[in-house]
Amino acid sequence: MKKSNRLFETIQIFRAARGPLRAEDLAARLEVSVRTVYRDIAALQAMRTPILGEPGIGYVLRRGYDLPPLNFDEEEVEALRVGLGMLSRSGDRSLRRAAARISAKIDALQVPADWLQVSPWGAPEDDPALGCVSISMLRAAVRDERVLRIDYEDGEGQRTTRTIRPIGIVYHINAVLVAAWCELRAGLRHFRTDRIHACTPTGATFPGQGDVFRAVWAEQNRWEGGGEGAS
């Protein structure tokens, strides 16, 4: 996470907090070191952000430093809540954490709606402890147009090593697919993320080619076929 984004996110965490936050708590939320949190707090204080700290207690954001009201009507807010809740079914842990942060910001400015629930069952979670490749890593590779080398297992249990140029992510109800140009097959293919057993950046990139590949992908509309994956 870039420092500017991290500083903004730190302020949002303070806004949603109901009490003092320790540096250790912030470090865990932001996935950085405690030393980085201390530096960030100092940077925000230098920018006159009213963060107050007390040894042994933690940090608080002084009242009055608030976001302006969100200009959404009731149904628009409910649509946001349902949409954010649906991300729990995507299997994408990083997006789910982002959704939780956004929901906390909405709750800080709106009346909570505990009666509005979304079933969490959906695609398998991309938990590294279970040997799953992070969907966040795949999304970053699409954005940065980075070539990846993956170990992939197809529906029949056959494993192959592929070099791919990822161009899109498709979230189905029970699976997540990465659309990519596969060098082995010399064509566009879809790979289920829960069948990618290893993923390593090659160091190569394909700048400017992503848009061209996506145009062909959209024309072929291959993802509508259910997308079991590669061949």
Rank of each mutant, 00 (worst) to 15 (best):
L95W: 03
A129M: 09
T36H: 01
G226L: 08
Y59K: 05
T163A: 10
V82I: 15
L61T: 01
Y38G: 01
L87N: 01
G131Y: 01
Q45F: 01
L61M: 06
H172C: 08
I164K: 04
A186V: 10
R81A: 04
R48M: 06
L26D: 07
Q117T: 03
I13K: 04
L70Q: 05
A23P: 00
Q209C: 08
R143L: 15
T163E: 12
I106V: 10
V176A: 15
G64N: 12
I102W: 08
L52H: 09
L21C: 11
L21E: 03
G210M: 04
G91L: 00
E76D: 00
W217F: 15
I57T: 12
S90H: 06
T202W: 12
T205H: 10
G203T: 11
I135M: 14
G225Q: 11
L67G: 10
R162E: 04
A141P: 07
I106M: 13
G56F: 01
R222A: 10
R189F: 04
V170M: 04
R81Q: 10
L95K: 12
I13E: 12
L44Q: 02
T161A: 05
G91F: 01
D40V: 02
L184K: 09
H197Q: 10
I164Y: 05
P50T: 13
E75N: 13
A218S: 14
I11Q: 10
D40R: 03
R15K: 02
D211I: 04
C132D: 03
P128T: 01
G131K: 06
P55T: 01
G85K: 11
Q117K: 11
A46N: 11
R39W: 02
G226F: 15
G229H: 06
D73A: 13
I196L: 06
Q12F: 01
R165C: 07
G168C: 15
R89V: 03
D151E: 08
R192D: 00
E76C: 09
N71V: 15
G203P: 12
T193F: 02
V77F: 09
E31T: 13
L80K: 11
R18W: 07
R97I: 00
L148E: 02
V212A: 06
Y65N: 08
S94A: 11
A23L: 13
C199W: 09
L184E: 11
I150T: 06
E153L: 06
V133T: 14
V118S: 07
N174R: 13
M1I: 08
R29L: 13
Y38C: 01
